[in-house]
Design a binder for these strands. Structure first.
Lengths: 179, 179
DNA sequence: CGAGCGCTTGATTGAGTTCAAAAATCGTGG
DNA sequence: CCACGATTTTTGAACTCAATCAAGCGCTCG
């Protein structure tokens, strides 16, 4: 992820901001073409459904980019909220620089990989949601997010896994018992 | 999707093939960087889990590209099977031409949009799987796949929705009753 | 220090699965 | 083109996993 700085420098308007815990940097319904590079801290992106329930798409810690990469393709307003789980330091830059014509071959490749990696993550998630139990999903989460595990509240992990906080608590109880 | 032909022409090795129903064009575990443009017919991509269950990722009819766009990014072998639901006519070409340096600005933009659109579809699917009932998922499917609906066997729709064929049959029964 | 939020635990309910078998549809060979 | 076997779809009963509802505990931060 280090060489993403190449891309970041393409946006002369890119700005680093210091954000407090719980600070919202993007709301569903807004028109924005911004993306966010996390220098420090921990963010999440999510939707809120008709019943007011939050559904988390991704967590982004140091070195990750978080944004609504796609909704702009179809319809203008984003459907994603993005906010800070911790106090964070984030570079705001324009997503459009991913599509500039004067990119080098390496930058191009980097961009394609970035999008492809995002697709890979989502594809895995779809399989996960379709085919494995909540318990197995939690185990997979433990593996894939081991570094930032203790920085994420339980309730948010439950939302990411697509279960209620109560269900996750019981799953953890089961795991603890079986040891 | 018409101008995708621009990209297709970049691969001098691209070949059109006629395929019979049930013919498999890609198997999990294979090493390939091919992508498939559907000129005619209907294909599906899917995984098979430990229990031997098929989980469908996408259907591709006329004008769509189907491929494992992402697993190559990480690990060599693909995890997706791709086969024909109907007799089909398909252009086999190399995915790598999406990342060539000599693409025009329009082609670049087209590629980015293609990937972004795929992300959008997957993102919607994740929300769908996390937050709505099987019945609602079926209704959403009816809307988004209305043109190819009657060409897809029930059992495959159930797999796409993440439910058993029995469950889908009952859902359809309910809907029919309520009219 | 107290109020509220987050986590746990238990009882109940419900959506969807599994298993089984019948009914409908498809497709292939004669 | 028909008939028969195979595959799909439907229907039903029993069961399971996770959701919902409700109550209690523990922390933190205001």
């Amino acid at each position: 992820m280090e060489n993403l700085n190449n891309i970041l420098t393409l946006d002369i308007n890119a700005k680093t901001k210091h954000l407090k815990k719980r600070e919202i940097i993007q709301k569903a319904g807004e028109n924005t073409s911004l993306a966010y590079y996390v220098k420090k801290g921990l963010l999440k992106s999510y939707t809120i459904d008709e019943k007011g329930k939050e559904h988390i798409f991704m967590f982004a810690s140091e070195g990750w980019i978080i944004a609504d990469m796609e909704s702009q393709e179809f319809k203008q307003p984003t459907e994603l909220f993005i906010d800070c789980i911790e106090e964070s330091e984030v570079i705001f830059f324009d997503r459009k620089c991913f599509m500039l014509a004067n990119l080098t071959e390496n930058q191009l490749r980097e961009n394609a990989h970035l999008l492809a990696r995002r697709i890979a993550v989502l594809q895995k998630r779809v399989i996960m949601l379709m085919s494995v139990s909540a318990q197995e999903r939690y185990n997979m989460f433990l593996e894939t997010h081991s570094k930032i595990l203790n920085r994420i509240p339980q309730r948010l992990i439950a939302s990411y896994l697509g279960v209620t906080p109560e269900a996750l608590s019981k799953i953890r109880g089961e795991i603890a018992k079986s040891k």
